[in-house]
Computed example of a mutant assay.
Amino acid sequence: MLHRREMAAALAAAGLVPLAARAQGAWPARAVQMVVAFPPGGQADVTARPAAAALERVFGQPVPVVNRPGAGGIVGSASVARAAPDGYTALMALSSLGVLPESERIMGRVPAYTVDQLAPIARITADPTVLLVPASSPWRSVEEFVADAKRRPGAISFGSAGNYSTLHVAMAMFTGSAGIDLLHVPFQGGGPALTALLSGTLDALASGPGPALAHVREGRLRALASWGRERIPGFEEVPTFIELGHPEVEFYIWTGVFLPLATPAPVQERWRAALRQACERDEGLRRALDAAGSPIAYQDGEAFERFFRDDTARLVRAVQRIGKVE
């Protein structure tokens, strides 16, 4: 009897059989909610929707995407940190997840959540951000942009998904290296900021390549540089900041799935197995992310935990350099 129980537990933990041994029956027994802490249209949303569709095929249950924006991602992230740890509420997070609690401390507030309230499950994508300007703008290179910014300190605006968000931190790295002063305009998420850039009410934006690609191809936006160590597929003609003489300007906007920390280990592993299967075998997911210019860069287990820890430490140092934003 003991041997059979051990075997059942091992198989369940590996995601090879449903958690039928539990009194509540097989997991998942109902819809699984994926929270995006930003409005539709941003990088997290662009990743979450095809990922949720792929997970529906794996789980055999609906996986609705719920946009819960507010405070640059704090509201939605905190809601998952406080959610019931039953595996039915997950967060599709951005790299700002680890930055926002530190930003709250800098502003003298008690963080709405801390990273140790969430369990890292898997990374889906990891893309360098891209510096975008309207195609109608006068800047055709970073050199022209920097020269104009030095002539008119504080006159050129840039948007972000909120104070200390990934898009804000990326631009702060660039402006600090270039020695320029821009006007920061925070939005509720990357989607609204991108809309403002397209409408001409913003001058510049650091964006994930996924949401930007179609607009660049259509000639509505111009990409001046990227924050990667190498050029981005789909943006092969766009130089990196490192190429342009800014060796410290390197930044990646990644998407990853997190669960409340107390979620049972077998359920966490079921999520990892499902995400791994979706990313490795689901052609619909792969095509959707490739078309969006944000290819799969899957990582889970100890590798993702280490990546998340190291990336968060680096970004927290950048936020501490930014300091208090009035």
Rank of each mutant, 00 (worst) to 15 (best):
L198K: 15
G176Q: 13
W227G: 08
S157I: 00
L213N: 05
E305I: 13
P85N: 12
H215Q: 10
G73S: 07
T129A: 02
I74T: 11
A172G: 08
G42V: 14
Y252E: 15
G256V: 03
P260A: 06
P247S: 06
V325I: 15
P62N: 11
T125H: 01
A170G: 14
L131C: 10
H3P: 05
R105T: 15
A9H: 10
L289D: 13
R306T: 13
R281G: 12
R222A: 06
P69V: 07
G72L: 08
H3N: 06
G228W: 00
Y298F: 15
R321W: 12
Y113S: 04
L2G: 15
F241A: 06
H3L: 13
R281F: 10
T263A: 03
R286W: 01
A291D: 14
S141L: 02
S226Q: 08
R140Q: 14
V185Y: 00
A23H: 11
R222Y: 01
G219R: 00
F59T: 00
R22D: 14
L259A: 12
A29H: 13
D86S: 04
P266V: 04
A10I: 12
A172T: 14
A83R: 01
A212K: 03
A37I: 11
L183S: 08
I296D: 06
G41Q: 10
F38T: 14
E143N: 12
A147L: 07
V66F: 11
P192R: 05
A37L: 06
A291I: 03
R231E: 03
D311F: 14
A83K: 04
T263R: 02
D45Q: 04
G98M: 02
R317L: 15
V267P: 10
T89M: 08
D127Y: 02
F251V: 04
R220T: 04
S199C: 07
V185H: 00
G293T: 00
Y164H: 08
A297F: 13
D300P: 05
R105P: 08
G154P: 07
E56F: 03
A274S: 13
G76K: 09
I253R: 00
E305Y: 05
E102M: 09
P85M: 12
I106Q: 12
A225W: 03
E250L: 15
P233Q: 05
A155Q: 11
G41Y: 00
A214G: 03
P111A: 12
L275T: 09
M92A: 11
L194R: 01
M1V: 09
A81C: 07
A278I: 03
S226T: 08
A196R: 01
F304Y: 11
A14E: 14
N163T: 14
A122T: 02
W271P: 10
T47L: 08
F241S: 07
P264S: 09
M1Q: 13
F145H: 02
R317I: 09
E305S: 14
E236L: 13
A81I: 12
A53Y: 04
F241N: 03
A265S: 10
A274Q: 05
A81W: 13
E250C: 14
Q43D: 05
A155E: 11
H184E: 00
G108E: 05
P295H: 09
M7V: 15
E302D: 10
M107K: 13
A71L: 12
V110T: 15
P192W: 12
R151P: 01
D86Q: 07
A303W: 01
L315V: 09
D310T: 14
A37F: 04
S79R: 02
C279I: 07
A126G: 13
C279P: 00
